[in-house]
Structure formats: structure tokens, C-alpha cells
């Protein structure tokens, strides 16, 4: 199963390192990563493979949210299908 991790907020040192660290620790492979500044906000989008994840989706979502709070950004993880279904026929 593939999911999309998004980080939105004010840019600072270590966002990518800490987010990818958390993912690596849980055996979640990053398939692709893009980052950009959209409407003055740092926006990072990662496509990840969570098939081998050591933790369930709910727990991953919780841990990323906590990391986001620590870094002062919003981090969320969503199944890729929500974006596919909304933007592609």
C-alpha cells in the first residue's frame, strides 16, 4: 500500500531528516519526494511504501502528527487513493 506524507509549514533545518528518520525507523520506504514553496509555505510531499511498516496506519499517523507538533509544522499521512480519486477520472 502506498501513502502520501505531506509536510506543510514554515521551513526550518531538519524537517526532512527527522521525517525520513521516523519513516526509516519503521521500515517505511520513501519512493519519491518533492518539495516546494507554495503560498509562502514550505510544502514537502513524499510517496511512501508502507507494506513493510512495523506499525499500523493509525499509529504512523499519530507519530507523524506528534513529530509535526515538535517541529512546528503539519505532517499528515493519507492513502494515495484519496488524491487519485479526487483528481483523476
Amino acid at each position: 500500500m502506498r501513502a502520501v506524507v505531506t509536510v506543510i509549514g514554515v521551513d526550518k533545518t531538519g524537517i526532512i531528516a527527522k521525517t525520513s528518520g521516523l519513516l526509516a525507523n519503521n521500515d517505511i520506504n520513501i519512493l519519491d519526494i518533492t518539495q516546494t514553496i507554495l503560498q509562502d509555505l514550505f510544502t514537502m510531499v513524499m510517496l511512501v511504501d508502507i507494506d513493510k511498516s512495523k506499525i499500523g496506519f493509525g499509529e504512523l499517523s499519530k507519530q507523524l502528527e506528534e513529530l509535526g507538533a515538535e517541529l512546528g509544522v503539519e505532517i499528515r499521512v493519507q492513502h494515495e487513493d484519496i488524491f487519485k480519486s479526487m483528481h483523476r477520472i
Binding site: 516546494t36 507554495l38 510531499v45 484519496i82 487519485k84
Partner: peptide, 18 residues
């Protein structure tokens, strides 16, 4: 990548968040 642009992903998130 999943053939979905960053803009589109952010659009979805904005709909939900804001």
C-alpha cells in the same frame, strides 16, 4: 510519483484543513 501534482495534493489538503 503517483501522477498527481503537488498542487493537487495541496488542494485536497486545503479543502479538508481550511
Amino acid at each position: 510519483m503517483i501522477n498527481i501534482s503537488t498542487n493537487e495534493i495541496v488542494e485536497t489538503i486545503k479543502m479538508i484543513r481550511d
